[in-house]
Design a protein around this nucleic acid. Structure first.
Lengths: 191, 191
DNA sequence: CGCCACCTTGACTCAGGTCAACTATTGTGG
DNA sequence: CCACAATAGTTGACCTGAGTCAAGGTGGCG
């Protein structure tokens, strides 16, 4: 007879806990990116990790013939650019004028080996990313255009509310590439 | 000027390292499931973790109207059922007659707090799952039916070869629900 | 003011879904 | 060992949700 596990390795879901937050006191730098400016590119050595302070960021891959899939939008307090291999797997760009906090990966890894909470945070964030990836696979594989757009609006409403934003920061083309649709279909669904 | 990071928290990709393997000496149990038998169900307390010994397993979610998305097929040596929240997020079933190794989650978590290698393994596996989820999002969102089936055959060829299997263990319906297609489209693409 | 980037809307096309028949292949009982 | 069900796969004809192509609209900024 299954029982609810008594111990969790990670402190699931408590949105506040962030590796960068813990690490901030070590003097992470702030940087600004203009609208549409590239932050890093697929294949580049992944030696930095970012936290959005203000604005929005998109992470995506493109196929050879320009088809693009956006994997996620990063809003204020979101961490992105966290990799476990040597290189960035995505390209990330500022959707609007954006401020980020940057820390060096090796310095974070150094802290992670001594501070258990940081290591736990890393696992926690990766697990959260996996959860969102799974939900998004269900959306991409099995939902209709209208359901996709509805799900997107609900997701954004929830996330933007937390950061005090009011309007969607991204364009129709970005939404389309996030939902596996075309910009025209997104426009029609919103009408 | 970016430099390749000198230290990796995880030992990326070395397929052999498995949490269960390390834990096996503590006396994990083997269990057998018949073709199509359910191993666990969405929402059930996630108190066990599994490793496939022989056979194949599918993990999926279904929408209210029976639309199904398969997130992954687990083949021999794959670990599945690893959760960080209290409940299983998927349903998992044996695709064919299947043997698995089972360990209790709380016992693994106990080991993880004392053995750093186990904790590292957990992060490693989760990162690998995330990588595969991202690749699959690109496939689901932006690839044509033929490209999806081609990608599936390449993936399976590679993975089955490692385990010495020859034929695809799963049905057209499973392949379709993995690729976001219908069974007829899969059948046509294979011809 | 007028350009330019973004968005909307319409008409048409098409990739993939749906529905339906038919063909293996496998398993079961007599 | 053969009937015959049952399950899985293939193939065809048709349909439709979303893509494509194209024409306007609209709002912000130099």
């Amino acid at each position: 007879m299954p029982v609810t596990p008594d111990v969790d390795i990670i402190s699931d879901g408590s949105a506040g806990a962030s590796v960068i937050g813990i690490h901030a006191k070590f003097g992470a730098a702030e940087t600004f990116y203009a609208k549409d400016e590239e932050i890093y590119r697929t294949g580049e050595p992944a030696d930095r990790i970012y936290e959005v302070i203000q604005g929005a960021v998109r992470s995506y891959k493109v196929l050879s013939d320009r088809r693009r899939q956006i994997f996620s939008f990063h809003l204020p307090n979101d961490v992105f650019g966290l990799e476990y291999g040597p290189n960035y797997r995505f390209t990330s760009e500022a959707v609007v004028d954006t401020a980020v906090r940057v820390i060096r990966r090796h310095s974070l890894e150094h802290v992670a080996t001594t501070d258990v909470r940081v290591a736990r945070d890393l696992l926690n964030m990766t697990a959260n990313n996996l959860r969102r990836a799974d939900d998004h696979m269900l959306l991409l594989g099995r939902k209709l255009a209208l359901e996709k757009v509805a799900a997107f609006l609900l997701e954004m409403d929830k996330r933007l509310a937390q950061t005090g934003m009011i309007a969607l920061p991204m364009h129709r083309r970005d939404i389309a590439d996030y939902l596996g649709l075309t910009l025209e279909t997104v426009s029609r669904a919103l009408s």
